[in-house]
Design a protein around this nucleic acid. Sequence first.
DNA 1: TAAGTGTCAATACAGGTGTATATTCATGTG
DNA 2: CACATGAATATACACCTGTATTGACACTTA
Lengths: 216, 216
Amino acid sequence: MGIRTRRKNKQEAETSSRRTQVTAQDLMDAAVRLLGTHRSVSTLSLREIAREAGIAPNSFYRHFRDVDELTVALIDQAGRALRGIIREARQRLSMERSAIRTSVEAFMDQLDADEKYLQVLLREMSTGSDAFRQAVERELTYFEDELRDELERMEKLTGHATFEPALTAKAITRLVVAMGASAASQSLDQRAELIDQTVIMIRMIMVGSQAMAKKA
Amino acid sequence: MGIRTRRKNKQEAETSSRRTQVTAQDLMDAAVRLLGTHRSVSTLSLREIAREAGIAPNSFYRHFRDVDELTVALIDQAGRALRGIIREARQRLSMERSAIRTSVEAFMDQLDADEKYLQVLLREMSTGSDAFRQAVERELTYFEDELRDELERMEKLTGHATFEPALTAKAITRLVVAMGASAASQSLDQRAELIDQTVIMIRMIMVGSQAMAKKA
DNA sequence: TAAGTGTCAATACAGGTGTATATTCATGTG
DNA sequence: CACATGAATATACACCTGTATTGACACTTA
């Protein structure tokens, strides 16, 4: 009696903070919220994330060993989103035309989806530790592999051969990612123009690849 | 007398730190040294840079208002290096062939030149404040403009028309930058392969662009 | 009921940080 | 010579950081 008054006061003010369990996902969401459009993960402090998620600094350790581990989790999420884009594109490809445009649009839309994991990936691609870069490279390689499959499948369907499908896929992937990185910090109608440009660029690559296949 | 003994001791140990004037350039060099291959500028503290440059924390303010201002200066330097690459490529183009390969090689070499400004640019492209991104975009636009001029000049020389030269230049630029960003964190023989890939990718774009010009 | 377990908060500590203030000194100028 | 100027320094302050320690509370399980 009288010993535990401190907590009670806090509880009164803070709406019973203990009640709801805080998950790893909550922490990831808090981090993304803090990152917004500009900050890189390395500028986030453990305390800041914990504060945003509404837990004590130390509770962070229940879910992640440190901020770096959380970052890798974010990148994994982004990779999942990326693969979702490809999978959708593949389905659309069988029924309608201009799969390129719809894929590019899907990619760009993913930039400001509810959880902006993709932006995190784009940002950590060039910044950050080796672990981050490796995680990003891994996800991009998945993407390239699926795109190559797609190109080879299309090759059989249309009869247009593709020159070095793996390289073509890589070129397209890197270009889209680069354009997406610019798009991330731009307004919506600027982004529309960027999408148009990206589509044309991809067409250049594919047309060029096919022309080089004929010549070789 | 007896009041100023503190300084004298320090002087003895530190080899007369006052003697040589510290320039803004020295601070920029110190920052690049600290950045190495992985850190982003936002992780540098003013004190850390000052320490590396061998000056007191407060002396930093004589040269830059804050770390952000120093970063923009670094990006400007990188842009100058970039324009140097284009200018060299232009001269080579008139006498020998395969200007593409030599340009790409020049670009990649610039990555680990003495002063690795280019790496800074690549890293701050996706991270960092609006000011950084704008600075980077500006430099890339310069690069694209010069490349477009080059493409148009080549168009007249060879008779091969180029489809939307501005867009073609942009595609090439963004692709090279993206490939350079991966190259920055790789070993030298991995980089050699990356250069080969980049050259082929550029050729795809140019061949595609020319084919689309004919059709349109 | 009692003990054990997992989740969180409170406190504390030893650092690092940006910057305000005042000081030291080498240098040029009258 | 005296003295103003400018560049660099030292000290100090309030703040934020990661994390170690300890204890509170809600649960299972016996």
